[in-house]
C-alpha cells in the first residue's frame, strides 16, 4: 500500500502534469493561514513544482489533503467552502494517482465533485435561502460589501455619496424599531438591473454547470459542460472576491480534458491566468476612478 502511494504515476497513465502543477500553484498563491500547517503545505507545493517524482507521487497529495483537512478542523467552522473542495480535490488526486487508471479516475472525480458542489450551491440559492431569489442578497451585498463597491459604482451608476447614504440606510435598527425620518435610499434602475443580472445569471450558470456535470455523457454534453464551466469562471471571478475558488474550478475542469483537446486545455489555462489578473488588478476601481473624473 505504502509503495503504491510513494511510487510516481507514469506519464502513460495520462494525468496531465499541468493539473498537478496548477494545484501546487494554488497552494502557493493562497497559503493556509495556520502557521504550524502552512510551511508544510508550502514545502509540499514547492517540492512538487521542482521535482517530478514528488509531483506525481500519490502520497504528496494525500498528505496535502490531510493537512488541509486538519486546517478545516482547527478553524472550524470558519473555513470557506473552497477549502473543503480543495481537500476533496487533493485526496481525489492522491487516490487517482495510486489507482490503475489515474486519468480517467481523476476526470470522473472532478466531474462528480463539481456536479455535487454546484448542485449544493444551486439548492441553497434556489430553495433554502429565502433572500436570494427575491434579489435581496445582491441588492444588499452590492451596497454593503466593500469588495463589490467599485463594481456597483461602475455598473450600477451610483455616485460615492449615494453609496454612503445607502450604507447609512442599511445600518440595522433593533427588531421592531422604526425611525421617524429614515435616511434616503437611492437605487437607480441600472443598479437594480445589475443586481438582477448577478442574481439570475449566477443561478442559471451554476445550475447549468451542475446539470451538465451530473449527466455522465460524452460528445456535445461534454463540450457544453466545459463551455458552461469556462463561462462561469470567466464571468463570476471578475467580481467574486474568491480567486482561490476560481483557480480550483479551472484546474478541475482541466483534469476533465482528454489528451487531444489542446484548445480546451489552453482555454482552462487562460481562464486560470484571467482569474489571477482579476484578483491582482483593481480593474473596477480604476474604471470607477475614471468614471468619477
Amino acid at each position: 500500500m505504502l509503495t503504491r502511494l510513494l511510487r510516481p504515476a507514469d506519464d502513460a497513465d495520462g494525468v496531465p502534469d499541468s493539473v498537478l502543477t496548477l494545484t501546487a500553484i494554488i497552494l502557493l498563491l493562497r497559503p493556509l493561514d495556520v502557521w504550524w500547517l502552512a510551511p508544510f503545505v508550502l514545502a509540499a507545493a514547492c517540492l512538487s513544482l521542482i521535482l517530478r517524482p514528488v509531483r506525481r507521487a500519490p502520497l504528496t497529495w494525500v498528505l496535502v489533503a490531510v493537512l488541509v483537512a486538519i486546517r478545516i478542523v482547527y478553524v472550524w467552522p470558519l473555513s470557506d467552502n473552497h477549502i473543503y473542495l480543495l481537500a476533496y480535490w487533493c485526496l481525489a488526486m492522491g487516490l487517482a494517482l495510486s489507482g490503475p487508471i489515474p486519468a480517467a479516475t481523476l476526470s470522473a472525480s472532478s466531474r462528480w465533485l463539481l456536479g455535487a458542489a454546484f448542485a449544493m450551491a444551486v439548492l441553497w440559492k434556489a430553495v433554502l435561502s429565502p433572500d436570494y431569489v427575491d434579489g435581496r442578497f445582491f441588492r444588499v451585498t452590492l451596497l454593503t460589501d466593500e469588495r463589490f463597491a467599485d463594481a456597483s459604482l461602475v455598473f450600477g451608476g451610483l455616485s460615492r455619496d449615494q453609496m454612503a447614504v445607502n450604507r447609512k440606510f442599511l445600518e440595522p435598527l433593533p427588531e421592531g424599531a422604526e425611525l421617524l425620518e429614515p435616511p434616503a435610499f437611492v437605487e437607480p434602475p441600472r443598479l437594480r438591473a445589475f443586481s438582477a443580472i448577478a442574481t439570475w445569471g449566477g443561478l442559471v450558470l451554476e445550475a447549468l454547470v451542475a446539470l451538465l456535470s451530473l449527466i455522465p455523457a460524452e460528445g456535445r454534453i461534454q463540450l457544453a459542460r466545459h463551455a458552461s464551466l469556462l463561462l462561469f469562471c470567466a464571468t463570476t471571478y471578475a467580481l467574486a472576491p474568491v480567486a482561490g475558488f476560481g483557480w480550483l474550478l479551472a484546474t478541475m475542469g482541466l483534469a476533465q480534458c482528454r489528451p487531444g483537446q489542446r484548445t480546451l486545455r489552453g482555454a482552462y489555462a487562460a481562464v486560470f491566468i484571467l482569474i489571477l489578473l482579476y484578483s491582482e488588478i483593481p480593474w473596477a476601481g480604476v474604471l470607477a476612478g475614471w468614471a468619477a473624473r
Binding site: L78, D80, N81, M120, A121, S129, Y132, F137
Partner: peptide, 19 residues
C-alpha cells in the same frame, strides 16, 4: 450555522453571513 460556513456551499446565497 451560517449557510456560508460548514462546507455546504451556501456562500453568496444569503445575507446571513459571518459579517
Amino acid at each position: 450555522l451560517s449557510p456560508w460556513k460548514g462546507g455546504g456551499f451556501g456562500m453568496f446565497s444569503t445575507t446571513d453571513d459571518a459579517g
